[in-house]
Amino acid sequence: MSNSASAARAEGSTVQSVDRAVTVLEILARDGEAGVTGLAAELGVHKSTAFRLVAALEARNLVEQNVDRGKYRLGLGILRLAGATAARLDVVQESRPVCRKLAAETGETINITVPSDGAALYVDQVAGSSAVQTHNWVGQRIPMHATSNGKVLLAFGPPELLVGLELPAFTEHTITRRDRLDDELAAIRAEGHGVAVDELEIGLTAIAAPIRNPDGVAVASLSASGPSFRLTAARLAEIAPLVRDAADEVARRLGWHAHVA
């Protein structure tokens, strides 16, 4: 058998396993709980296959076993995933009118990001009037240390975001030393916003502010970005309070008042 044929079979087997695992979750969501025998019958597989599926899901806390009954039910990991999705949808929904207003005021592109797997995940974007052929960042994960959004999330987010953080260089202006990053994060906390000039891409500048929960922890960030020739130091100083106010307004719309003066 050729290597390509073997790879195709392996890929097909993987897809089938994923489909079966999702079906297990759907069955448990429908019935509340089920045993391996019942799952195997509904899936049309051997009990050993069903057991391997629930074992893999259990390892991820997506299912858990009722010790008394020996059956499986949805685990707390499902709530975590659902909560994360709901939180992102809420941020996007509540930030959209604020981002549109800020884009109109500044003429720049406005982005919303949330932390995701050690990166800043772009979940929404509104182009300003000055934007020409705007790059669509939505759905992309961007290194935290090289972007204004990411640095704001590091400065105001939970401490674990900094654990094991790698600092690869993207341009000659990228921060690659931890002591320099720590100094910059301290300055961001003092000023209430972060800036990145030519750090991810030459010619790209952005300024961001945190969207904080009632405990003051950033759960998202809001940024204005544009070409470096337009977003000069003087221009950044002009729009900094607008960006901070917009981020605080999103927090208010989400019902997070505690950190807002």
Rank of each mutant, 00 (worst) to 15 (best):
Q125I: 06
D90T: 11
C99K: 08
H173E: 13
L181H: 05
S116F: 15
K151Q: 03
L102Q: 04
E184H: 11
V123D: 00
G157T: 07
V114W: 04
D182M: 08
V98R: 06
H145I: 02
G150Y: 02
G164D: 08
L181T: 04
G128T: 12
T134Y: 08
R141M: 07
V152L: 01
G157C: 06
H135F: 13
A127I: 10
L167S: 07
A127Y: 08
S148V: 00
L181D: 02
Q93E: 15
P115W: 04
T106L: 11
S148D: 00
A119L: 11
A169S: 15
P158W: 03
T176N: 04
G157H: 05
A155M: 10
V163F: 05
A169L: 03
L153K: 09
E105S: 14
V92R: 14
I175G: 03
M144G: 01
E105Y: 07
S130V: 05
S116T: 02
D182E: 15
I112K: 11
S95K: 07
L165S: 10
Q125A: 03
T106N: 07
D124G: 10
V91A: 08
L89S: 11
T109R: 09
E160N: 11
H145Q: 15
L121K: 01
A169F: 02
S129G: 11
Q93K: 12
A119K: 12
V114F: 04
S130K: 15
G150K: 01
G157V: 06
A131E: 09
L89N: 13
V98N: 04
L154D: 09
N136S: 10
V163D: 15
E184G: 03
D179A: 13
E108Y: 12
Q133E: 14
V132G: 05
D179F: 13
F156K: 04
R178C: 00
P158I: 13
Q133C: 07
V132I: 15
I112E: 09
R177V: 07
V132A: 14
R141N: 05
V152W: 00
G107D: 10
G107Q: 09
T134R: 12
T113H: 13
P159D: 12
L167W: 06
R88T: 01
T147Q: 01
A169Y: 02
T147H: 01
E105D: 15
A131I: 10
G107A: 12
A120R: 01
N111M: 13
S116G: 01
T147L: 00
D124P: 06
S95H: 09
L89A: 11
V123A: 00
F170M: 04
L161D: 03
V152T: 04
L154V: 12
Q93P: 00
Q133G: 06
T174N: 04
L121H: 01
V152I: 01
T113I: 04
V92T: 14
